[in-house]
């Protein structure tokens, strides 16, 4: 990063104006990023800028590298070339920088990944207590607040195994929010759920989007993309093929690959 950073004010709700004021309110910048698994080139020259409060939906066929991409943003996967800068911190080999990025980035997984040996409340408090060093009482109060927000405060003392899939995923969202992250990553949060539970999770995500959280979602829920996203990114073969506001993306896709994909998922 050669650019000098000036003191910035936090502007949670940036209007989606064309990205002229680069650097001012960017929270994620990915520049020329490549990743290989052995000899397999999974991600090819990705460039992306995300502003504070922006909501981005990433879609694409399976194996297109979309999950790998967002997992690079909190360093669950390592990239080999290019830059990823999250909240002014570049992800390098420095463990302190990785730690500080992970503190600011919450993640929700496809298979929830709740800790089965801890209660819902303990799941939520774990990281605030051990990473943020918050006093237990305070952490529990915050956790209850977020559990309230995802509408399951009454399940706080149950174990994850006693909840339905939709409830588990909402706990997972609350758990991520308890760290008060600046960015939330969603890795196909609804694809492991039964159809009747998808809505309760999407409702929570929509509510969250309304509060001004910066969100990156890998999802196949096109309805969610239409109502919530500021931008839709289409990936295929490890590349970003198309990037457009949802209205343009769904009504007027430019690239043939995008057109083909949309045709496949929208027809029945």
């Amino acid at each position: 990063m050669g650019k000098p950073m000036t003191e910035q004010t936090q502007t949670p709700e940036t209007q989606s104006s064309p990205s002229t004021d680069v650097g001012k309110s960017d929270i994620i910048r990915v520049e020329g990023m490549h990743k290989w698994y052995g000899d397999f080139h999974v991600l090819k020259d990705l460039n992306l800028t995300v502003r504070h409060g922006e909501r981005i939906v990433i879609c694409g066929p399976s194996g297109s590298g979309k999950s790998t991409f967002i997992r690079c943003i909190n360093r669950l996967e390592e990239h080999q070339q290019g830059k990823i800068i999250v909240d002014d911190v570049e992800l390098t080999d420095d463990v302190r920088q990785i730690d500080s990025v992970r503190r600011e980035v919450g993640m929700v997984f496809q298979h929830f990944n709740l800790f089965p040996h801890l209660t819902v409340l303990e799941n939520c408090c774990l990281s605030p207590i051990w990473v943020r060093k918050t006093p237990r009482k305070e952490a529990e109060a915050t956790a209850m607040e977020y559990l309230e927000r995802v509408k399951i405060p009454d399940q706080a003392n149950k174990f994850p195994g006693q909840l339905s899939g939709g409830q588990q995923q909402r706990v997972a969202i609350a758990r991520a929010l308890c760290m008060k992250p600046k960015i939330m990553l969603f890795d196909e949060p609804t694809s492991a759920l039964d159809p009747e539970m998808i809505k309760e999770v999407l409702d929570v995500m929509i509510e969250l989007a309304g509060s001004g959280m910066t969100m990156l979602c890998v999802t196949h829920e096109m309805g969610f993309a239409k109502t919530v996203a500021d931008r839709v990114i289409f990936m295929d073969g490890g590349e970003i093929v198309e990037e457009a506001p949802p209205h343009d993306f769904f009504t007027n896709p430019q690239e043939p690959r995008t057109q083909k994909f949309l045709k496949q998922i929208l027809q029945h």
Partner: peptide
């Protein structure tokens, strides 16, 4: 922002913090 100190150093991380 508080973390800009790391950021403005173009050099690699301090050796002790490199896993």
């Amino acid at each position: 922002m508080k973390k800009q100190t790391f950021d403005s150093k173009p050099a690699g991380p301090k050796p002790w913090y490199d896993p």
